[in-house]
Amino acid sequence: MAYRALFVFVALTIVTSLLVLPKARGNSEGDALSALRRSLSDPDNVLQSWDPNLVNPCTWFHITCNQDNHVTRVDLGNSNLSGHLVPDLGKLEHLQYLELYKNNIQGSIPSELGNLKSLISLDLYNNNISGTIPPSLGYLKSLVFLRLNDNNLSGPIPRALSSISTLKVVDVSDNNLCGPIPTTGPFEHIPLSNFENNPRLEGPELQGLAMYDTNCS
């Protein structure tokens, strides 16, 4: 009987641990999105389905996952959200689309977004984001669309963005950027209208760059 009781105890322990493990282990993508939710004010309850107790966030509204249950899209454009972005977003390593346009998001762009190596589209336009454009965005070698227009961004346009060969659209108009406009790489084909209404931008950079103060702030 003692052996039988021991067997039952061990079996129950294993079953219990298997049931508890997913929540204890958590999901890094779910944790990252939960951190974002905590940082945002959501008067219209568009994030109501974001339940941090679920093993992964693929059943949440405004989230798209691939067949391996990795988050590939966050679609929260025009959702009446306020608050700020969080460094945890850099953990969404399979993310392709980060759509947070037309909200009231404030604060800065986390440099950790440079970890999103699969990102195709970064749409943060029409918010109240301030601070500088992180040079780390130059690591986004799959990026095609970068729309940061209609914010309160300051500082220079990082020349690191010139190394993104996939980049087709850059719009940083209606900010407070300063310094020269890059002209190499993808910037050869970006219209000047996408840089307008930045009173401190000094125009396209010239060969040698000697006349420009690239340490503007």
Rank of each mutant, 00 (worst) to 15 (best):
H84Q: 13
N104Y: 10
P134F: 10
L124C: 06
N198W: 12
S118R: 08
H84S: 15
T16M: 14
Y212D: 05
H70W: 07
S162I: 00
P199M: 11
S118V: 00
V8E: 06
P22T: 09
L137G: 01
T59C: 01
P135Q: 12
L54K: 08
N78V: 14
S41D: 07
S111E: 11
N176L: 14
F145L: 14
L161A: 08
I120T: 10
I63T: 07
D123G: 01
I157V: 14
S121W: 07
V74M: 03
D44Y: 11
H84K: 13
N197I: 06
D174T: 09
H70E: 12
N78C: 05
S82L: 07
H94G: 00
R25C: 02
G203N: 04
E112T: 15
R147Q: 09
N215T: 15
D88R: 03
S130Y: 00
N151C: 09
L36Y: 02
S130D: 11
Y97I: 13
Y3W: 08
T64C: 00
S28I: 15
V10D: 00
L54F: 00
N176V: 10
G90D: 06
Q106V: 05
S165C: 02
P158F: 02
T184P: 00
Y125R: 13
S162Y: 00
D31W: 06
K102F: 08
T183G: 06
D150V: 10
V172Q: 02
T72D: 09
H62I: 11
N198M: 10
L6I: 14
D42E: 06
P158G: 03
R200S: 15
N149Y: 15
P134T: 04
E188T: 12
P87S: 12
N78W: 11
L19K: 03
N27L: 03
L6C: 08
L54H: 01
V8A: 13
N198R: 08
N149K: 04
L177N: 05
G208N: 03
A32V: 12
L89D: 05
V10F: 13
D75F: 02
L19M: 13
V169Y: 10
L148M: 05
S34T: 15
A160S: 11
I120R: 11
L12A: 15
L81Q: 07
G114M: 07
G155Y: 10
L146Q: 03
L192G: 06
R4T: 07
T183S: 13
